[in-house]
Design a protein around this nucleic acid. Sequence first.
DNA 1: CGCTTGTTTGATGATTTTCAAGCGCAGTGG
DNA 2: CCACTGCGCTTGAAAATCATCAAACAAGCG
Lengths: 244, 244
Amino acid sequence: MHILEANTRPMIAFTKHHPSRTDFFSRHTSNGACRKLAARQLIWAEGDLRNEVCFVRSGTVCFYKVLMDGRRVVTGFAYPGDMIGFGIGPHQRNAEAVQCCKLEPMTMANFQSAIASDNDLSDFVQAQSSRELCSSYEHLMVLTKMTASERLAHFLTGLSTRNRRLGYSPNSVLIPMRRVDIADYLGLTIETISRTFTTFKTHGLIGMEDPCVVFILNLERLAALARGACDEEGSVSVCRKIAA
Amino acid sequence: MHILEANTRPMIAFTKHHPSRTDFFSRHTSNGACRKLAARQLIWAEGDLRNEVCFVRSGTVCFYKVLMDGRRVVTGFAYPGDMIGFGIGPHQRNAEAVQCCKLEPMTMANFQSAIASDNDLSDFVQAQSSRELCSSYEHLMVLTKMTASERLAHFLTGLSTRNRRLGYSPNSVLIPMRRVDIADYLGLTIETISRTFTTFKTHGLIGMEDPCVVFILNLERLAALARGACDEEGSVSVCRKIAA
DNA sequence: CGCTTGTTTGATGATTTTCAAGCGCAGTGG
DNA sequence: CCACTGCGCTTGAAAATCATCAAACAAGCG
């Protein structure tokens, strides 16, 4: 219990997701009972059987895979309002609580029958699968073709956009995950992440009071960077000029 | 018609996939009628509606996305025996014939009802989706954590493994795609691809008589590289020693 | 107060990109 | 028939980004 509170990472701003988005899920679970997870706690491991799907009520979840030699890749994150765990076959990747989390579970059996009978739920699942596929392709683009600055800008504007969509300020972004997670997600090292944050700071793109809170001071330029906006003026160096 | 023959790229060795794998598909199409595509011909574009799914009878298909500024990412390839085009919503990426292809189409309506009634087909679709998801995670690993040599080794051993699975020699690999496609797939430039091929050649890992035909002379070392076999001896430089 | 964990900063080095040029081959047209 | 052109691949030299190694700093906790 105590360890649950010992999490210094900020809860992400939109801890309480829009209530209407929870209804279609809760009507198939016992009574909306939540499981609490401490920060850094493993939710399931690669290869585990799919026993249940979960609705994320609060906190942030991180999905990752590890190579034999310890190299790690973060394939994505899940935030409040997301559903996690559906798919076919055993789990393909580890899931871990980035900060303390509340997850509302539903057994696989319930989920199967709920999908069949509840259009709201099956629509939601379809929509989320589609979004995930789409963003995984976009992520490939980020990893293969973008510079460090562009990648981090992409990451930050993503969080910002999510804020706006949920009715929060797009200009102040809470970063629930550690630098390692961001690095392994963006295919960079923690040092590069840190340095790029500093570059953004010194050039007035963002402000930071601690590593977890970012104020976006120039969303336009940040978004241009994230888009890889090298159209105007020609060359790649423009990207760096935008940051500089 | 003539342009169809004008393709100098070799047809991939396993042009004729295992016949049993075609039955469950053909019994839902008109009569196995195929559409012929010339090399480099667009099959569908990102954003297009999903009108049909196709079974790849011969040739190779390449999936990719393009940024506004022309940067391109190849997200994957499809080979004879693969099904392409299923999913939800409009197409998420462009599909293009790498070499001349024969595709057997099935309308989306037919596909939907076939899925519902034919267990062989729905099993196949599930299995392929699962494989694609799995390999997309692995691909993330390749892109974020591997060196140029490791990436190309991974690519080559992948083709080799496919050969073996289909009963062909794992030691001679036909490369149906151009260097650009490989580069955009592996997140590198064509120059790096070319240089790495040369490195492999000069160190006896592979032999090449033309850019499309690779003989794997030391599959073991190539596979070790592909695995990122830096376990023995500790550091990353071992990877380069393996290649050297 | 010392220890641990996570972040930042610095200096150095290396892998990969970029820019440039050359080569081989196939198809074209005079 | 042969030069010419376009395309794809290769190779070279130089520059640049990012990783690596190392150390210092800050905050929380026992």
